[in-house]
Amino acid sequence: MHDVSKIPVVEDVLEANRRLGEENRKTLDLHGVKAINVMGAIGSGKTSLIELAIDRLKGELRMAAIAGDVIAAFDSERLARHGIPVVPMNTGSECHLDAHLMRHALEQLQLDGLDLVFVENVGNLICPSDFFLGEHKRVIVVSVSEGDDIVAKHPVIFKGGDVAIVNKVDIAQFVGADPDKMIADALKNIPRAFKTSVRTGEGIDLWLEVVRETCRR
């Protein structure tokens, strides 16, 4: 006769990533380096915002970047032109960075010579939110061209974040989006949200302040 029984397992599949993320955080803290995880939609302006911060804060902070993308060379080339160390992380068909990839990226940076690492996540408002990388701050970037219901449609990623940025507000009228609605939707799930335009410079000081404040803590 066959004997059938239930064996308890009770293991969270995402727990391994969280543990590795905590290890990354310890490594960063040991070297006194802060990390900002920049997540957001495809084409929302993540790279442009990071480029701007690098240029404007170059005199104050020693920065590096980890560029995660399906083919990371494009963004990493853009960021490296600003004279900082950049580690490209190719995710292939994978839709997010995880703590394991982050670990490998950190291994390639001289952490002792740095104050801050920008981590540009894969353009996606879904998968990255489940994967803690060890960052000190989570910034979520969306732009008006994704439609002004984009924030309401993705509450989970905003709930896990610290700052939401609604970018490209200079073109809001041309794409028929209401950036104030996007801000209001974000504030339901995130403590801080503001509008920016890399083109006109609107709100950029607020973004730079987020970066500075992360490094002061």
Binding site: A72, A73, S76, E77, A80, R81, G83, I84, P85, V86, V87, P88, M89, N90, T91, G92, S93, E94, C95, H96, L101, H104, Q108, L109, C127
Partner: peptide, 19 residues
């Protein structure tokens, strides 16, 4: 890249192709 040493390019391990 752009005159800057950006370290090794490490491809995503093949065993993890999708979320």
């Amino acid at each position: 890249w752009g005159g800057v040493d950006i370290g090794q390019v490490r491809p995503r391990p093949k065993e993890h192709p999708l979320h």
